[in-house]
Design a protein around this nucleic acid. Sequence first.
DNA 1: CCCTCATATGCACAAATGTGCAAATGCGCT
DNA 2: AGCGCATTTGCACATTTGTGCATATGAGGG
Lengths: 110, 110
Amino acid sequence: MENLIDNDTEQTVIHYIPRNATLHALAEFFSACSDVTRAKIICALAMSEMCVTDLSRILEINQTTCSHQLRLLRAADIVKQRRDGKIIYYSLKNRKIEDVLMAGVEFLDL
Amino acid sequence: MENLIDNDTEQTVIHYIPRNATLHALAEFFSACSDVTRAKIICALAMSEMCVTDLSRILEINQTTCSHQLRLLRAADIVKQRRDGKIIYYSLKNRKIEDVLMAGVEFLDL
DNA sequence: CCCTCATATGCACAAATGTGCAAATGCGCT
DNA sequence: AGCGCATTTGCACATTTGTGCATATGAGGG
């Protein structure tokens, strides 16, 4: 069983591979961006803090679905909430998420 | 049925939301990055062109699985292949994928 | 206390996804 | 042609995911 790449390269590659925890975190994060509904929500929240009702009305998605996806986005630390009386306002937790979207747009040349 | 955000903001948000085709492309792209195995493969290929056998051996993943995931990555235009006799070498099609991973790493503060 | 509105949760279900075995294909060699 | 190796493909299966209805929770106002 011969190696096809040379041993030095192999060692370099092996050391470059991130730890499993890192890979897992990355995959989970990208997974949170990998749905049309959630991408929509992120884009909307990048413009303005908003409540669930407005979000679902403006994006034309079911309120329940919106709520479910917001929960996922919150679990992924992409979105945060703030309560004001009856209303819960959602917004981006960290503006770096926009850099990620931009990088995606760049890659796809959109 | 009253709006909770003012109409100007609402209009701005509505115009900011990317077209459906764009959202779909973005989601599909991130979906390609949203799996541990594929993330691993991308990281490895960022270091060096490699064939399936080496990839699966070094990353310690089943060769068949590796092949399946490479097909997905190829469909997502993340990876390209080059044949040399019996061997097929895989490499990143576009180095901008690294910027995306970096943005993810930045976001997660890894 | 009851009504209304904003939001979340439980549940069910269809659809998509990741994995690996078994078998097929492709290619060079003799 | 026949063999061996590299890679892909077909198939099956368990698991996860996205969605929305029905229902619950939570908060303010009369």
